[in-house]
Design a protein around this nucleic acid. Sequence first.
DNA 1: TCGAATTTGTGCGTATGTATC
DNA 2: GGATACATACGCACAAATTCG
Lengths: 253, 253
Amino acid sequence: MADGSSGDSAPYLRVAARLRSRIADGIWTPGGRLPSRGELGAEFGVGENVVRRAQELLISTGLLEGRAGSGTYVRAPFERRPLLRTPSAAGLPYSGLAPFGFTGTWEADSTAKAEAPPLIAARLGVKAGDPCVRTSYEFLSARQPVMLTTSWEPMAVTGGSVVVLPEGGPLAGHGVVARMAHLGITVARVVESPRPVHVDRDQAHLLGIATGSQATLIERTHYDTGGRPVETADILIPADRWDITYDIALPGT
Amino acid sequence: MADGSSGDSAPYLRVAARLRSRIADGIWTPGGRLPSRGELGAEFGVGENVVRRAQELLISTGLLEGRAGSGTYVRAPFERRPLLRTPSAAGLPYSGLAPFGFTGTWEADSTAKAEAPPLIAARLGVKAGDPCVRTSYEFLSARQPVMLTTSWEPMAVTGGSVVVLPEGGPLAGHGVVARMAHLGITVARVVESPRPVHVDRDQAHLLGIATGSQATLIERTHYDTGGRPVETADILIPADRWDITYDIALPGT
DNA sequence: TCGAATTTGTGCGTATGTATC
DNA sequence: GGATACATACGCACAAATTCG
C-alpha cells in the first residue's frame, strides 16, 4: 500500500494513459516531439524511468517513436498501403521478384557457390550443403526501403546456364519465372507462409525502422509443373508500413 | 573497459549463449526444467538479474518458457503444422469458417444487434454504428486451442432471414458460403491480410499461450460476385504452433 | 485445507553507452 | 567537441503463481 496517487494501476500505466490522452486531444500532433523525459517526469511527479516505461509501452504499440539523441516523437497513424501478393482480378504480370503492382527499384547481391543451410535445403528438396546461388535483395519504393529478400536457387536447376545469376545475363532483373522459362521450366505454383518476427539491429538499419519492430517474414517457394522446388526465398516486410494482401478467388459451386 | 570476463559482448548475452549451447548439447532436454535463477547465477558467477535477462531473451525467441511459481522450461522445438488457407491443388471444400482441411471443433457466441466499430464498418462498406451480427469463435483441434475468430456480418445483408445467426437456424455451422448461398448470394472472393501482433492477457488465456506471445492477426473479408463485402473477420493464430500457408497457382503464360 | 517456501513476473532506480544536434 | 536525449544493461524489492508439506 502507501501508493499515494489516486489511481488503481501502476504509475507507469497512468503516465502512459496521460500521454495517450494528450495525443488523442491533439496537444501533441503526429510528427511532433514530446518534452524530454526529465521534463515529463517533473511535470507528472514521477521518476524519469517511469516516463521511460510508459514511452516504451506506447512505442511498442506504434503510437510513439524514439530517436536516440533527438527525442520522442508522435508517429503518424497507419499509412499502411496494400502489398498485393496474389494475381487478383486484374491480370497483373508476375515475375516472382517484386509483388504484384510493385513500382520501385531494387539492389541485388549474389553469391555464386553458397552452401544450402539445412532449413533452406529442406525447402528446396536438396541435401544440406548442396551448392546454391544466394541473392540478397533490398527493395525500395519512393526511396523508402520496402522489404528485404534472400533468395536461394539450387545449382542443380540453373547451373551452367546463362541465367545462373538472377542479376546477370540477358534476363537480369526479370524474375524467377522468366529465367526458369528460359531453361524450359514452367513455374506453376508459389507457396507462401507468413510468420511474425522481430527485426534485429542489422535488418532494422537496412529497413530504416526501430530495432525490435515487428515484421512479417514470408517463406516463399516456387515449384515447377512437376512439383519440384526451383527457388525459395525469405522475404522480410515491416509490419507498420505495408498491408500484406492475399486476394483469393473462390471456385464457383 | 575493465569488463573482466573473456568475451566481448554483454554478460547477459554470454549467459544466453551458454544456456543455448547446453540445450543444443542435450544437457537440458525439451520439456525439462532449468535450475532456478539463483542457482544459475551462482554457477555462472553473475547476478540473478543477468540470468533473468538471458532467459527473457531466449523466451522471446521461443526457446524457453517461463511458468510463474514453477520454473523455466525448455520448449519443444517447432512442431509447427501447416494451416492451409487457399484451395491448393486438391479440391477441398471451403466454408469460410475453418481453414481448408481443418479437422476439429469450435465454440461460438453471437451478438445479434452489435454496432459496427469504425474500422469494421470501413471493411464492410457500411456506416459506423450500423447494425451487425458479431460472432466470436474459438477453434479447437485435438483439444488444443487453434485460433480465435471474431466475425462481423451486416444486418443489411442477412437481416430478417433464417440465417441471421451463424450458429443458429438450419445452416448452423455450415459457414459463410453456404449461408450466403441460401440468400442467393454467391461468395466469389476472399481477401486476407496477415499482420503480426502480440496477444494480450485474455487472448493468451484462451489460446493457452504466454502473454505477449507473437501471433498473426488475419483480417479477412468475403465479397460477393458484385464486389460487395458480405462478411469480415479478425482471425488470431498463435505463431509458434501453426504455419499459415497460401498455395497460389500461377496462370500459365 | 491451508499456509509457507520457492520460483517466476513486474515495477522501479541507477549507471553507462550512443546517436543527434 | 560538448551538451542533450534516448537506448541498453544491471541490481533490488515486491507481487503473483505454483508447489508441497
